[in-house]
Amino acid sequence: MTPIGANPALYSRKLMHYAFVELEKYDNIEEDAFYDYFNVNPVQILQKSYEQSARDAKKEGLIGSSTACLAILRDDELRIANLGDCGVSIIRRNEFIFRTEEQQHSFNYPYQLGTGSTDSPTDAQVFTVKVESGDIVVMGTDGIFDNLFDEDILEEVVRCVEGIDPNQNQNPFGTGSPASSPALLSGKGVSGLWSKLASTSSSTIAAISGNKTTTATDAAGSIAKKAGENEALEALEMVAKGETLESTSELSPIAAAAIIAAESSALPLSAALYPQNSTSGSTSSLHSNLAAKAAYLEKQKYERKIPEPSVISDALAKRAKNVAEDTRHHGSPFQSRAMQEGLYYQGGKQDDMSVLVAIIKVAEDSPDRR
């Protein structure tokens, strides 16, 4: 229940406004912070913002409180300070690599900053995560993470990356498990791809040319004699760019395998080029070089498919809203936590559903910090 005269929305906006003001100082050459750009600490930013917001609240008679989450990117580091039940998830090539956890005093009683709260910015959980180009960062309020399981979030991200209709094969009850979508389970960049690889004999994974199947060792020898590295790499680049070859009959076995594997999604490009039983030093070196380049091209191909961040954020917000408003819905993270506390609760939770998505990219030019 909100006290009479309280305005938590205004307090939260002030908190983030002053955080933004503090961060801008690191790009202003007239500020001392300009020379400390790479040492920025999200907790210190949050502390200064909290102090200014507290002064405003006292001056204006403002009553309010708010959870808070800051994420600051410096080079390949994402520095996170999270206080309360907001959250940050990082997805890399359709797999979670990081996820914050709710910070609560007790069930549905999160840490908060504001009037009447004893919590402070120094109570925030702090993380430093190494990121790379193509990583998808999802920041959301509790309305997102109370209504969507991690599997739901990942499913929406994969759908957006693969360009799949968000209503296609979606489980209408949102049980927290991805629906049986062929595109999601066929192995295109998800764990199913590697399960196929693991279930295949290592002696036969490799190169297919026409109707002939050879071992990786034989294929390595063939490519070294017939075509060399350039032909295979050229074929891989064509696949990475989305081009289709009319025939693979003239390719070396290993190059043909890469094309067939890429087009059938049976194996990732790098797996098709990786030696399994090679005993030749030069052959192994050739394979390793090709595998590394193939992995790079595969990563580039994935990054080109990533849509604008707003496409992903809209999809996540829409799905969370549907869960919260659907009276037939019988599973949500909030319901699961309530039941663990011995409380009866059914469905999603109607609450603020703010979500921000960012894509990590390598800057072509150094930022102008004058």
Rank of each mutant, 00 (worst) to 15 (best):
L73C: 12
Q112A: 06
E250G: 09
N211G: 01
F107G: 04
N167A: 09
R370P: 07
A124R: 12
G187Q: 05
A183V: 05
M339D: 08
F334V: 09
I63T: 05
A266C: 01
N28C: 11
L297F: 02
S247V: 03
A81N: 12
S199W: 00
E246P: 04
T141R: 04
A207C: 15
S280R: 13
K225Q: 08
L70F: 12
Y344V: 14
L73S: 11
E243A: 09
A235C: 13
T327H: 05
L316A: 04
A363V: 00
F127H: 13
R337E: 12
L290I: 09
A220E: 09
E155S: 02
S209A: 07
H287S: 10
I72P: 15
V161A: 02
W194M: 08
E132L: 02
L269P: 01
D76V: 05
D36T: 05
A261C: 04
G210E: 14
Q52I: 10
P307E: 12
G228Y: 15
F98E: 14
S366M: 07
L185I: 05
E246N: 07
G331I: 07
A266Y: 10
M139C: 12
L233N: 07
G140S: 03
S332T: 05
K225Y: 14
I164K: 06
G116N: 05
M339N: 10
S120C: 06
S201M: 00
I259K: 04
D85P: 08
S199N: 07
P178G: 03
V138C: 08
T283I: 14
P309C: 04
S120F: 11
